[in-house]
């Protein structure tokens, strides 16, 4: 890292080799298109290099890089937002105003690795991710791919911790709903009166 900051191109290349796929997975999770994700990663590394002297080393290089990737990915989808028809039912789900369903207790029989061997399941996951709103998807990807805390995600997205919790909750619930027919004998639990309020009051920061 220090060598890269001093301008050693090979050192910077080493950083690229170490993190490019991880950065790509993150970008892909947000922008959903391979070429767009590649563009985002490329721009992120160029930007990281440009501001390398401003990196203070308080966090890891990747922590710094993923913020750049996330910002560029979110910028990208905002700039290239495609108008797509949104069904009322979907909009209701995205807004969190669903029918009181909460999280589901089961998904794929406890063997995700095995499930991912199935091409159809991979496609279903892709589709389900693609149908989430940008905000829901971004939070879900940050959490699942990078394991960020709610507080870290709130900082990264410039919103409150309660908002992050609400988005994450709905993202997960909507993913479960979209994958429900893959599930192994699961049934939704009743309830969830007002998740937004609960998330707001549940932000214990």
């Amino acid at each position: 890292m220090e060598a890269a900051k001093r301008g050693d191109r090979e050192a910077f290349r080493t950083l690229f080799e170490r993190y490019h796929r991880r950065a790509y997975a993150l970008a892909l999770g947000v922008v959903r298109h391979q070429d767009d994700a590649l563009d985002v990663v490329q721009d992120a590394f160029i930007k990281a290099h440009k501001y390398l002297d401003k990196f203070e080393g308080n966090s890891s290089f990747y922590t710094w890089l993923y913020r750049i990737v996330m910002n560029l990915a979110i910028d990208h989808i905002r700039k290239h937002r495609r108008v797509r028809p949104v069904e009322l039912d979907e909009q209701r789900l995205e807004d969190g105003g669903d029918e009181g369903d909460g999280l589901l207790p089961r998904l794929l029989g406890g063997n995700p690795g095995r499930a991912l061997m199935d091409k159809e399941i991979r496609q279903r996951i892709d589709t389900a991710l693609g149908e989430l709103s940008e905000n829901h998807r971004s939070v879900l990807v940050m959490r699942e791919l990078e394991g960020l805390s709610y507080e870290e995600m709130a900082q990264a997205m410039g919103c409150s911790k309660g908002t992050i919790m609400s988005r994450l909750f709905h993202a997960r619930k909507n993913m479960q709903r979209r994958l429900i027919d893959l599930m192994d004998g699961a049934k939704p639990l009743p309830d969830s009166d007002d998740v937004e309020d609960a998330a707001a009051s549940g932000s214990r920061s």
Binding site: A25, L28, L103, L107, L116, L129, L179
Partner: peptide
């Protein structure tokens, strides 16, 4: 069960994206 389901979903999403990157 719900906690496990949340974790499982997380593994699915993570696994899918990592595989796509690979």
């Amino acid at each position: 069960a719900k906690v496990e389901a949340v974790k499982e979903l997380g593994e699915l999403v993570r696994g899918r994206l990592e595989r796509a990157a690979d």
